[in-house]
């Protein structure tokens, strides 16, 4: 299992478009991917799950991946957060 914390850096937070991007990226990996915000944990491959997490600007999110390609999965998702989901 691989974990890494990131901060939501785009102003609008994770709404539909970033969520779709996130789920698409997560879907490219075989590992199961989870996102954790405080006590809430959602499946990173479910679009509705990711949206309802309510990840607003400056929230800390923990990315958890488990499986054969967990390293790559976490890295790809962290890059996505750092690129502000190609917004702003």
């Amino acid at each position: 299992m691989k974990e890494q914390s990131v901060i939501v850096q785009n102003r609008a937070g994770i709404h539909a478009r970033p969520a779709a991007l996130l789920v698409q990226t997560a879907g490219n990996f075989k590992s199961s991917v989870y996102l954790e915000k405080g006590s809430e944990k959602v499946n990173g491959k479910s679009i509705m799950g990711v949206i309802t997490l309510g990840a607003v600007f400056n929230t800390e999110i923990t990315i958890i991946a488990e499986g054969a390609d967990e390293e790559a999965a976490v890295e790809a998702l962290v890059n996505l957060f750092n690129s502000k989901f190609q917004e702003d």
């Binding site: 609008a12 937070g13 709404h15 539909a16 478009r17 309510g54 607003v56």
Partner: peptide, 20 residues
């Protein structure tokens, strides 16, 4: 549907942020 949904999500995220 999709646009309305996103609008309410954006509103909700905005309120959440203001609250935090």
């Amino acid at each position: 549907s999709a646009k309305e949904f996103n609008r309410s999500i954006m509103n909700w995220l905005e309120t959440e942020r203001a609250r935090s």
